[in-house]
Simulated scan of single mutants.
Amino acid sequence: MPPYTIVYFPSRGRCEVIRMLLADQGQSWKEEVVTLDAWGQDTLKASCLFGQLPKFQDGDLTLYQSNAILRHLGRSFGLYGKDQREAALVDMVNDGLEDLIRHRGQLFLRNYEEAKAQCLKELPGHLKPFETVLAQNKGGQSFIVGDQISFADYRLLDFLLNHELLFPGYLNDYPLLSAYVERLRARPKLKAFLDSPEHVNRPISSRLKI
């Protein structure tokens, strides 16, 4: 039996980055899919520590909160920078993405088309900090921090790929980020996951149907 179990909705949401990381690290995991109807019955919600999913099992360790899960896996697989300086930068990138993801979530709870238009308008300003950090590391020709992949790379890749679904071709305007995405996508195990039907057919959000 795989040592890891992901309990989540039938969507990418907060868990696709975790799946990317595990796949790229050659790990297997079990999925327990929770439908919105089942979640609405409140029994499972009441059993979750913060009343939220994802829930993540690593052997006898149960974790909630997606960022805590990412940091745990980052430490487990050496994906947290090579020293304290790099770890701080990894945290900075991840926290910056967290702010954007929360902002996007609030937007899309309103009118979908209006939210999409605003998202596109804001995109250059929102991507600029990540372009800056990337450019500062070997001229943008490596990972977001240091010379080895970190959990922040998976988080940024997930963010950029989700926007490719919303705005096909938008990365053409961001050559540094576009090349970065292609480098990560070329990693064999990650490529196999990203090309899999499980990933391709999984919506970004089960609630918003995108």
Score class of each variant (00 low, 15 high):
residue 3 P to V: 15
residue 5 T to G: 08
residue 5 T to W: 07
residue 6 I to S: 01
residue 9 F to Y: 08
residue 9 F to A: 10
residue 11 S to G: 05
residue 13 G to M: 00
residue 22 L to G: 04
residue 26 G to Y: 07
residue 26 G to V: 05
residue 26 G to I: 14
residue 31 E to F: 04
residue 33 V to S: 02
residue 34 V to C: 03
residue 34 V to W: 07
residue 35 T to L: 14
residue 35 T to Q: 13
residue 37 D to Q: 13
residue 39 W to S: 08
residue 39 W to H: 06
residue 39 W to P: 02
residue 42 D to E: 15
residue 46 A to P: 00
residue 47 S to K: 10
residue 51 G to Y: 13
residue 52 Q to R: 08
residue 52 Q to K: 11
residue 54 P to R: 06
residue 57 Q to A: 10
residue 57 Q to C: 09
residue 58 D to L: 06
residue 59 G to W: 11
residue 61 L to K: 07
residue 69 I to G: 03
residue 73 L to H: 09
residue 78 G to C: 06
residue 79 L to A: 02
residue 80 Y to G: 06
residue 81 G to E: 04
residue 82 K to R: 10
residue 86 E to D: 11
residue 89 L to S: 11
residue 97 L to V: 03
residue 98 E to D: 08
residue 98 E to S: 05
residue 98 E to R: 04
residue 99 D to Y: 04
residue 100 L to I: 15
residue 104 R to C: 09
residue 107 L to S: 01
residue 109 L to D: 13
residue 109 L to H: 12
residue 110 R to W: 03
residue 115 A to T: 12
residue 122 E to D: 08
residue 123 L to R: 13
residue 124 P to Q: 12
residue 126 H to I: 08
residue 128 K to T: 12
residue 128 K to C: 02
residue 142 S to Y: 09
residue 145 V to H: 11
residue 147 D to W: 06
residue 149 I to D: 06
residue 150 S to F: 08
residue 151 F to A: 01
residue 152 A to T: 06
residue 152 A to S: 02
residue 153 D to T: 14
residue 153 D to P: 03
residue 154 Y to K: 01
residue 155 R to K: 11
residue 158 D to C: 05
residue 158 D to T: 12
residue 158 D to A: 12
residue 159 F to S: 13
residue 160 L to Q: 08
residue 161 L to V: 02
residue 163 H to R: 12
residue 164 E to I: 13
residue 170 Y to F: 12
residue 171 L to P: 02
residue 171 L to G: 02
residue 174 Y to E: 07
residue 174 Y to A: 05
residue 175 P to T: 07
residue 177 L to C: 05
residue 178 S to E: 13
residue 181 V to T: 15
residue 181 V to L: 08
residue 182 E to P: 03
residue 184 L to R: 03
residue 184 L to K: 06
residue 185 R to E: 08
residue 185 R to F: 00
residue 194 L to I: 10
residue 195 D to R: 10
residue 196 S to L: 08
residue 196 S to T: 06
residue 198 E to Q: 11
residue 199 H to G: 01
residue 201 N to P: 00
residue 202 R to Y: 02
